[in-house]
Amino acid sequence: MTRGRLRTLGRLAARQPLGAAGAAIVLALVVTAIFAPQLAPHDAKEAAFAPYLPPSAGFPLGTDHLGRDILSRVIWGARLSLYIGLVSVTFGVTLGGLWGVITAYFGGVADSASQRVVDVLMSLPPIILALSLMAALGQSVNNVIIALTLLLTPTASRTLRSLVLSIRESAYVEAARSVGCPHWRVIALHVLPNTFATYTVLVTVNISYAIVVEASLSFLGLGAPPDEPSWGAMLTAGTQALEPAPWMFLFPGLAISLTVFGLNLLGDAIRDLTDPRLRGGLG
């Protein structure tokens, strides 16, 4: 990385200290997730130790009710939670977003028909939708992702649709179309770039939403398979031992909070930086 780029980064960080903090947290998480097998001191699923051990030199974050090392589970949990979050959001927000962009761009019957589908999906209470979907599909990591995708798609579609509706009427899109530019080119060159900021914010915010919803499903007994070290399942187990073993809820809780923090701060910063109207401070 050149010195100039570094300086730019430094300036960005100075202007967006929270955003920089967010980026650092997200980076640390991604590294943890990637190197989980190397970083975790013990097996995350094997109940090999004494239960309810408080944090100590041997077990920095203690052990859980079955005698599993919490540090290892938190580390592996980063991989699982980020995986669930990233994949479901990529599917949900990207597909939903594209759906919204294309139907809004072309308008007409396809648009209003697709909006009715979005209406239907949005009018159902999300937790009930997720609950019955999980009960129907069975509990697996991939099914959690399917359920979350279904929750995220309509919102993303609606948000990007309303954005594209205004972009469609803008002067440059009109101009591009009037000179006979093919639709795919207009979409690719003029519409999509203008949705980038919103898209990024949707992604960062919804990854954290996905992690929290997965945790809630775990609480209702319908999350990822319970032997998987998901932060949600760990937090749920922690609520059973708030007083005798506070480390059981504290560390997965902190992990979720940090992740959500990092992603949201990063999302805010990206929005502030990319939206020209928001540059600079107030008065």
């Binding site: 929270l18 959500v260 923090f261």
Partner: peptide, 26 residues
């Protein structure tokens, strides 16, 4: 907003994000 990018703004934002980061059951 009125105190954007001051410490008050930061405290408020951190506080509000913390609400998002804890599942309701917890």
């Amino acid at each position: 907003a009125v105190r954007a990018n001051t410490w008050i703004d930061y405290v408020v934002r951190v506080l509000s994000i913390s609400g998002l980061s804890l599942p309701i059951f917890f």
